[in-house]
Structures are given as C-alpha cells and as structure tokens.
Amino acid sequence: MNLPGYEDIIEDLAFFDDWEQRYQYIIDLGKSIPKLAAEQKTDELLVPGCQSKVWLLSHTKDGVLQFQADSDAVIVNGLLAIVLAAYHNQTPARILAFDIDDYFQTLDLERHISPTRGNGLRAIVAKIQGLAKQAQS
C-alpha cells in the first residue's frame, strides 16, 4: 500500500497556510489511498461510531501490522491516510508507543481526533491500538 510517511505528511501540511489548501491536500490524499473492494467491506470490518462508514482491514506480516482502511466520505479517507501513515507496517510496540495526539496537534488537526468529536477517528485509533495489544500478547 502506497502511503506517504508521516514525516512527509507533517512536512507537506506545514507548507500550506490556508484551510482550503490544507483540506484540498487531505481530500486528494483521501482520493489516492487504495480502496477496499466492495466484497471486502463487510459489517465485521465496520468501525462503529462514525457518521460516515469506515472499514478497517488488518493483518500481521513478519512482525508488523498492516492496515487498509476505506470510508464513504473522502475527508475521512484523507484523515485515515494520515492515521495509517503512522501505523501501517509498524511493530505493535511502535504502534503503542506512538503519540497520536501529539501528531495530530503538530498537524493542527487535533479537532479531528478529539474525544468529543463524533467522526470516529478516535474509534479507529482505539481499534488499531487494541489490535496492536492483541498482537503483542
């Protein structure tokens, strides 16, 4: 899966100075991430708590966790790409050590990850962390 690294995302987003450019970037990211096939979008993979539908597919390979995510909303897809940039192809230990709040704060996107916001990004992160814990034990 071809995702930009999270350092790249931090660098890219720091470059823009207005909301339009920033969200255009997120939208374009959202469009560029690989989609799940229709038959992969099963109810078991659906992450509850999102206004739009979000599916998260994961597996372990050579000690790292790999993820694929898809949403029917494009901005959520872009945010998923940003989340997965941090978590995809990482060991469970790295995943659990990663400070996602700090990352989103650096990106100036903390409103998307705040526990009060109902877009479910937080639920995705919790799910990924849970999978990492499982993989560790």
Binding site: W19, I27, A73, I75
Partner: peptide, 13 residues
Amino acid sequence: GSHPADVGFLLDK
C-alpha cells in the same frame, strides 16, 4: 458524488 459529511465539513469551515 459527495458524502453529506464532507459537504457539511467544508461548509463549517
């Protein structure tokens, strides 16, 4: 072609 959540978000901005 757009999800209402995306539209709502961009209007809020």
